[in-house]
């Protein structure tokens, strides 16, 4: 295998891991956002806690792995990306603090101030995670500012109409994904509320995703490279198709199928973004000669080869025991059997 092929494989793995994380974070964060509104009493709260309880930690490890893989395979991308998106990333870290502690600690004391505080901490953390990631990756897709010193971002590179649309789109997709997830995992009143909500959110999420793709095509140069390879238009096309098709199982209460479609839609949304960026990892908006490409950022051949072998052996095992976990916890969580935290 040539070094160039190796670097392209690693670019794909890099995008793949981020995309998997976003799919899994979708239902996890969404559950946190819906938490104060779907659960009316403590038993219901426990149902919702338990619906993500065994999984949220592993889902967050995909983020840690995404960070680690960026660091290991593309050191310069890691350094530049993380130091450039400094403020959004710290806000994400703070949000991650309160998602985790809010979820796990809210029932560890009986005072109502304690419970209320942690409930809203859980909510805020969960809301900020997809919004800030949507914002950050929209800014990435749109491209960074550059001058003779290299890449940088300004306030308006992140906070602009396109970014806010991207952040909102990812929040809405997360909400849809989690409403379906809760419909799968729970039983009783909380499930009913979730199913009704899923049906209501679906058209809004679909609308936002369509808008986001229209804005991406009109406002950014992300998909410009698709002109040479029109077949690549299929990727964002599939993201739209998946979210539209999700409507059918949602209407017919086929939650497993609905969840699969929404997950695929989130996955292909980010796949479209990463494919559009290729071979850039950090595109410069004005002057493409400042873009950081995967070839410039890639680590050494030896490092990438060793990591590829390690990934090849470990990741299937990780995925196997995670599937096994989902099977063990496949039962419906009822008000009675819910343990929560």
């Amino acid at each position: 295998m040539s070094y160039e092929t190796l670097t392209i494989i690693w670019f794909s793995i890099w995008g793949l891991i981020w995309a998997i994380y976003f799919v899994l974070e979708g239902y996890t964060a969404g559950t946190g956002i819906l938490f104060p509104f779907l659960a009316k009493k403590e038993e219901e709260q426990r149902q919702l806690q338990e619906s993500i309880g065994p999984f949220w930690g592993s889902n967050e490890v995909w983020l840690i792995t995404a960070g680690g893989v960026t660091f290991a395979a593309f050191p310069e991308t890691y350094g530049t990306m993380f130091s450039t998106f400094y403020i959004p990333l710290y806000l994400i870290l703070f949000a991650l603090f309160f998602r985790a502690t809010g979820l796990e600690f809210m029932h560890k004391s009986n005072s109502s101030l304690w419970k209320q505080s942690w409930k809203w901490a859980f909510f805020s953390g969960s809301l900020l995670i997809p919004f800030l990631f949507g914002l950050t990756f929209s800014a990435l897709f749109r491209g960074l500012s550059s001058n003779e010193h290299g890449l940088y971002i300004t306030f308006s590179d992140v906070i602009n109409a396109y970014g806010i649309l991207g952040g909102s789109t990812f929040v809405l997709l997360s909400l849809l994904s989690s409403a379906i997830w809760i419909s799968i995992k729970t039983e009783g009143a909380v499930q009913k509320r979730a199913t009704l909500l899923a049906k209501k959110i679906w058209p809004i999420s679909s609308g936002f995703l369509s808008l986001f793709f229209i804005a991406t095509t009109n406002q950014t140069s992300l998909f410009n490279s698709f002109a040479n390879e029109p077949v690549l238009w299929l990727i964002p096309g599939f993201a739209l198709l998946f979210i539209l098709f999700a409507g059918i199982p949602i209407v017919y209460n086929k939650w497993g199928m609905g969840f699969a479609f929404v997950s695929l839609s989130i996955f292909t949304l980010f796949a479209a973004g990463f494919t559009g960026m290729f071979p850039n990892m950090l595109p410069a908006r004005m002057n493409s000669s400042f873009s950081l490409t995967l070839y410039e950022a890639a680590g050494s051949e030896l490092n990438l080869t060793i990591m590829l072998w390690i990934t090849f052996f470990i990741v299937p095992v990780v995925i196997l025991y995670q599937i096994w976990m989902y099977r063990i916890f496949r039962g419906k969580i009822t008000e009675k059997n819910a343990r929560g935290y």
Partner: peptide, 22 residues
């Protein structure tokens, strides 16, 4: 490492990042 020590990360990532990913 990335947010605050980007020069370090770029310098040493080919070795330092790998154990972190593993």
């Amino acid at each position: 490492f990335g947010t605050n020590w980007s020069k370090y990360s770029t310098f040493v990532g080919d070795i330092f990042g790998t154990p972190l990913a593993i």
